[in-house]
Amino acid sequence: RSRTNFTLEQLNELERLFDETHYPDAFMREELSQRLGLSEARVQVWFQNRRAKCRK
Rank of each mutant, 00 (worst) to 15 (best):
F27I: 12
S2G: 08
Q34A: 09
F47T: 02
E9H: 09
F47L: 06
F47Y: 05
A52S: 09
T21W: 03
W46Q: 02
G37M: 09
E30C: 08
A41C: 10
R29V: 09
R55W: 11
K53F: 11
E40L: 09
L17A: 15
G37H: 05
E40I: 09
R29P: 02
N12R: 14
E13T: 04
F47W: 05
N5D: 14
N12V: 10
R29Q: 11
F18P: 00
W46L: 01
R16K: 15
Q44T: 09
L36C: 13
A52T: 10
F18E: 03
V43R: 00
L17W: 05
R16L: 10
Q10P: 00
E30Q: 13
R42T: 14
Y23Q: 04
V45K: 10
V43F: 02
V45Q: 08
E20Q: 14
T4G: 11
T7V: 01
R51F: 07
K53N: 09
R35T: 04
A41S: 11
F6K: 06
R51T: 06
G37A: 07
T4R: 06
W46T: 01
A26D: 09
D19Y: 03
V45T: 12
A41E: 08
R1S: 05
V43N: 01
S33M: 07
Q10M: 02
Q34S: 06
D25N: 10
S2C: 00
E13A: 13
A52D: 15
A26F: 09
E40S: 10
F27S: 15
Q34F: 03
L14N: 02
Q44W: 03
V43K: 05
D19A: 13
N49F: 04
A52L: 10
R3T: 13
R29L: 15
L11V: 13
V43L: 10
R55Q: 14
N12G: 12
N49W: 05
Q44K: 15
E31A: 08
N49G: 10
L17Q: 07
K53L: 07
D19N: 15
S33K: 08
G37I: 01
L11W: 05
Q34I: 10
T7Q: 07
L36G: 03
A26L: 10
E15Q: 04
L17R: 06
R35W: 01
E40T: 05
F27A: 15
N5F: 06
C54G: 12
G37Y: 02
E20K: 15
Q48W: 04
R42L: 14
Q10V: 04
E9D: 08
S2Q: 12
T21L: 03
F6W: 04
R3G: 15
Q44H: 13
E40N: 06
Y23N: 12
Q48P: 02
E20Y: 09
K53H: 05
P24F: 00
R3Q: 14
A41W: 10
L14W: 00
L14G: 02
A41D: 13
G37W: 02
L11R: 08
E20D: 10
E15M: 03
V45Y: 08
M28L: 11
L11P: 00
S39E: 11
W46P: 04
Q34K: 14
S2P: 03
R1N: 10
C54D: 15
T7L: 03
Q48E: 12
V45A: 14
R55M: 15
E30R: 13
